[in-house]
Design a protein around this nucleic acid. Sequence first.
DNA 1: AAGGTTAATGTTTAG
DNA 2: CATTAACCTT
Length: 705
Amino acid sequence: MNRYDINSLNEQQKEALFQTEGVVLVTAGAGSGKTRLLTHRICYLLEKGVSPFNILAITFTNKATNEMKERVLQMCGKHLWISTFHSMCVRILREKIDLLDGFDKNFTIIAEADRDRILKDILKKYNLDEDERPRVIAHLENIKNKGLDITEYFCELKKIEKNKMYKFYEDICYDYEEYLHKNNALDFDDLLNRTLELFLTNKKVLQEYAQRFEYILVDEFQDTNLVQYKLIKLLSSVHKNLFVVGDEDQCIYSWRGANFQNIFNLQKDFKDVKTFKLERNYRSTKNILTLANNVIQNNNERMKKSLWTEKDAGDGPVVYNAFDERDEALFVSKTIEELVSEGYSYSDFAVLMRINALSRNVEEGLLAYQIPYKIYGGFKFYERAEIKNVLAYLSIFVNPKDEISLLKIINFPRRGIGEIAIKNLQEEANDKQVLEYLLSDKFKFSKYFSKLSKFVETYKSLSAQMNTLSVSDFVSKVLKEFGILNEFVGRDEESINRMGNIDSLLLSVEEYEKDAENPSLGEYLAQIMLKSDSDEIQENGFVSVATIHAVKGLEFKVVFILGLEEGIFPLARASFSVSEMEEERRLMYVAITRAEEKIFLIHASKRYMYGKSNFQKESRFLGELNIVDKKKPKIFGINTKQASESENFESGFEVGDKVFHMRFGFGQIVNISDDGFVADIKFENTGTKSLMLNLANLEKVEEDE
DNA sequence: AAGGTTAATGTTTAG
DNA sequence: CATTAACCTT
């Protein structure tokens, strides 16, 4: 499957592959084998004698990076520079950021939560209301996504509209930048922007990289923002061998600055761009592709293209009108169970939704049916409280200027340093960073000395050992000597959970150490900040429950799309904007094209959300799919004919009956609902479950004593 | 400074 | 409903 074999490519793919020189744009529909093309092209270049050192491949997610690395290694046994934009920039900055005034290579990468906290403090300084923050963030993101100058940006805005807040926003943006600078810290956007700045201000550095990368390949080009586009342009300025693959129909990150117009800009900025179109789909059945084509043709902002396949028609889509969210979950669970009994594996399933909030209901259903699942999207590893604290401890060793981290842990474990103490310490430190002050002789005369002397001593002693110990040994020592571990010890479930998180942190350090060429704590911290829980999506033996954003680039045999209701998918706010509605539609297109064999489209008539039960209108997208041959679901949730007629059900079971269930094993009925449908059954090994007697496959067990 | 109680508030989210 | 920030009490 992953062997290098150019003949396994189709004609269009081959043409694109052989066009190694110059700027090449491949518009590749979903499932048209673009990863295959990319990996083959890399191997082809290597075979032609290009050194792996001179190739750069950029992907959108860590998962795609890992996969491509693995495939290239498998196919041609070579390691090369394959990474996401962000990790590429980290790598460049860790080598060269010294050239930017005030920064050094031990910079801290700060998360969004940190940014929010910093902005909160700044807003307070200006006596501005908390709810100004989203507006400031919007401006800040706008500036950073486009790589603009703060002053110029607001200048332009003021020309269009008079708003006296702009002056404040401008000052706040500058304060924020200054704060990060003082802390030797970069946020995610800065990683890209500072690299761009580096290239623009240091021609020699740019030259070094542009000279090196003879061939550059970029995947998911439609989701690049302007800064990323500029970076690519600069990096390919010497050799001008740029190969980009994209599909404007799959641009689903424009709310974050992604601009699929970059596809068209490319044709303007480089003359003589060779373009190729891949429309043959290798992933899905005809029926599924028809749905995808039908829905996306409602968008105007796109180039016309239409996917086709030589695969069979396959199963038609199943539309299920669930009674409510519980019914939806039940339908999903039962369908999965049925299909598993037919031979599907759990990892063949994706349960997709527009918003994370829907995952909880499905979770309950899957849990009840004992279907192994993993939820992706939402939470990041470093966002867990314990992890955050430990990482903050580590960070102040790597980057002593990192006051954001210091303040996070200065009172953890408790040292009697509260808000006021912190303020005083900052004052005492004068214009120094607090940690620098704590380490100075002057601090001995502070009234906080007694409270913090042990902390300072431990810091000094560990700091001296940092370079002699391995990264993992150092981390263990930090955990122990600052008394962090003691904080997490306990017998309750929460403590056990926390310890588990700490364990997985240690494990990730060890894993990093094993793979890294030159392991260092600084590099470890940088890469952990770029990790997300979606990196390991589609794990063997588990159903993937995820947002559509999280499954970009993946494929599943069976796909469920939940919550196909107006207000959820498409989101309510999209109704006011044509471009946002088109993005929702692209999202729908992405969701459908994940499916290889079967697709289930579900909308509930009633949905409980945010503490309220609402009647839901079915999504406009369902209509746009133009389903001719409506297939009735074979399986129902609770919304069966019997159930909706609300007659009583005669199951033949009674309270006290011993029963056997295929999955849950032996159990005893402890209660049956008045209408006879639902039985609470206490299973020997798996606890009490509520099952529908008309549907659950229960056997009566006779007692033989 | 810590812990408990009340009130507010619900776009998506990679790196 | 469930989470989280803000507030209040000790």
